[in-house]
């Protein structure tokens, strides 16, 4: 199966991932090869097989409802590029 440039373009938007226009074709080709590789799955008879989402066949372990965290925003915000008045800044969000 091969991926068109349009397919790739929409995957890039979905993934918020810029690919230089000169590289689009090469990326599309390689993705097509990968899709061809995984297309081998299509030939397998999986009728009646339960999908396996996780290697552990166990119930989820829960935690009790206790507040264990304290305010560390100054330390955590040292990794952020733009912070003002303790808020993370991003280009304007439009609704």
């Amino acid at each position: 199966m091969s991926l068109s440039l349009e397919d790739l373009q929409s995957l890039c938007i979905l993934s918020r991932l810029e690919i230089a226009s000169g590289e689009m074709e090469g990326v599309a080709d390689k993705l097509s090869e990968i899709v061809t590789l995984v297309d081998a799955l299509q030939a397998v008879d999986t009728a009646g097989v339960e999908p396996m989402a996780h290697p552990l066949d166990r119930a989820q372990h829960l935690r009790e409802d206790r507040v264990t965290e304290s305010d560390n925003h100054l330390r955590y915000q040292r990794n952020a590029q733009r912070v003002e008045q303790d808020l993370y800044l991003v280009p304007r969000v439009i609704e």
Binding site: R82, E84, Q85, D86, L87, Y88, L89, V90, P91, R92, V93
Partner: peptide
């Protein structure tokens, strides 16, 4: 208040 930027809390 953020000159065209949005602040995230």
């Amino acid at each position: 208040d953020f000159q065209g930027l949005s602040g995230i809390d």
